[in-house]
């Protein structure tokens, strides 16, 4: 599967990056292609391009705050999860994507 994800947390200091790390690792281990955009204290990093979003099978929002530039994802299949869930058990989130 091709997965794109966005992580964001209230202060954007730690959890944003932990969740990104956990999602990336789990996805790769399970043989998925993944790119995670982080929206934290340093702003948007590893920004998803329109093309990447177009080609993705699914979009994961692991966010406790509103995702910035959300309109980019209009019409895509979006799975919203808590950032804590992404840190705690990314495998389960990925398993729940089906396909």
């Amino acid at each position: 599967m091709r997965i794109v994800a966005v992580t964001a947390c209230p202060t954007g200091v730690a959890h944003t990056y932990m969740a990104a790390e956990r999602l990336e690792k789990a996805a790769r281990r399970l043989g998925h292609l993944i790119k995670v955009e982080t929206q934290g204290s340093m702003g948007i990093e590893n920004e998803l391009t329109v093309e990447e979003i177009e080609r993705a099978d699914v979009v994961i929002f692991a966010a406790e705050v509103a995702v910035r530039n959300r309109e980019r994802f209009e019409g895509r299949r979006i799975v919203e999860v808590g950032i804590q869930a992404a840190i705690k058990d990314p495998d389960r989130i990925l398993a729940g994507l089906g396909g």
Partner: peptide, 16 residues
């Protein structure tokens, strides 16, 4: 400080 925040982000990832 941008540099420090970057470091903290990197550290958060490493802690995983």
């Amino acid at each position: 400080g941008e540099e420090h925040l970057k470091t903290i982000a990197g550290l958060s990832r490493r802690l995983m």
